[in-house]
Design a protein around this nucleic acid. Structure first.
Lengths: 175, 175
DNA sequence: TGTTGAAATTAACCCGGGTTAAAACGCATG
DNA sequence: CATGCGTTTTAACCCGGGTTAATTTCAACA
């Protein structure tokens, strides 16, 4: 658990209320966050003001804008607390330096990135190959907890459809 | 360029004809491939036999099934040559060991995974937030070469629509 | 030059989900 | 208990893309 130690030593503990942002789309943010408690969501805001939810982030999860932290560009998404949350933030630069110096940390970061990559692959698969209805069934079967934590509105935006659309799907399945 | 050296030393050069597979969905494959020449595509086959293209892989690119190589599970996609191709394959295990031992290689693998993660994020964004028409325009503007390399059929399957749908979009835009 | 087969276009019909707006359902608060 | 506000449902209409099948285009080759 060298990585956790490193974050404990070098990270800043941040306490946020529901509705508070850690960063917003378009801003630069060089931190990687580890969630200690609470619930967050990462979302895109499209040109016409529509919200699309990238992911929900739960205690134990890591999150940060790779594009911003690594490539130094503006973040493509926003990160906001859905519930009061405590996270620890560590500058990506420090993490990167540490990984170059300490093989143990490098290994864990590697594992983390591989897990991250696999998760993204899964999401890509779902968005590319499955219908909205199939994505809904999958979410219901694999992450039922999420339905008790967020509104249906947000589930819909995560599935890539509107709340109205989701309501219809549920109705259709109830027959 | 320590990583390239490592692959040159430890990799196996493989020559394939157009149409040959490196691996198929459902199989186990522990290799990471670096493309020297040619053109490949990674694709999903859904239950009803529909093909969805995950990505095109060009010379210089790396590809492999993370799920299979790292987690030891069956690959979720197939990898096939669209043109005669030469790739070098290196077992993921060796790469992993090398990265634990050599910080230089670890650093490069880290960079690779970060770049990979960013690419996936971009794709997730496109599939989640953009319409098929917007995705088409984006591809046309950012990777025009691809249109000279593969059939429209494959462009469509990459965009997540049918060839017929793509033809309609082109028509619509031509006014 | 004509033939053949793959790729691309077009047309007709269908359907899932978007959009807008109205109704119904909570559930907290005074 | 009544009020009010956010969430969910329902309804009506629209539209993009799927599906199927016919047609056209084009390149390869005899």
């Amino acid at each position: 658990m060298k990585l956790d130690e490193f974050i404990a030593e070098n990270g800043t503990v941040i306490t946020k209320k529901a509705g508070d942002h850690l960063f917003r789309q378009g801003e630069h943010d060089q931190s990687i966050y580890k969630v200690k408690s609470g619930l967050l969501k990462a979302y895109y805001l499209s040109a016409d003001g529509k919200e699309n939810i990238k992911s929900f982030i739960m205690p134990g999860d890591n999150i940060g804008s790779l594009v911003s932290a690594w490539a130094g560009k503006a973040s493509t998404f926003s990160l906001v607390c859905l519930k009061p949350s405590i996270v620890s933030a560590v500058p990506f630069r420090k993490l990167n330096e540490a990984s170059r110096a300490d093989p143990g940390i490098a290994g864990e970061i590697l594992d983390f990135l591989l897990a991250f990559g696999m998760k993204k692959e899964m999401r890509e698969y779902e968005l590319l190959c499955l219908t909205a209805e199939e994505r809904y069934k999958r979410l219901r079967d694999t992450s039922p907890e999420i339905f008790t934590l967020v509104t249906q509105n947000e589930i819909a935006r995560y599935l890539g459809i509107t709340p109205v659309g989701l309501s219809r799907i549920k109705k259709r399945l109830a027959d």
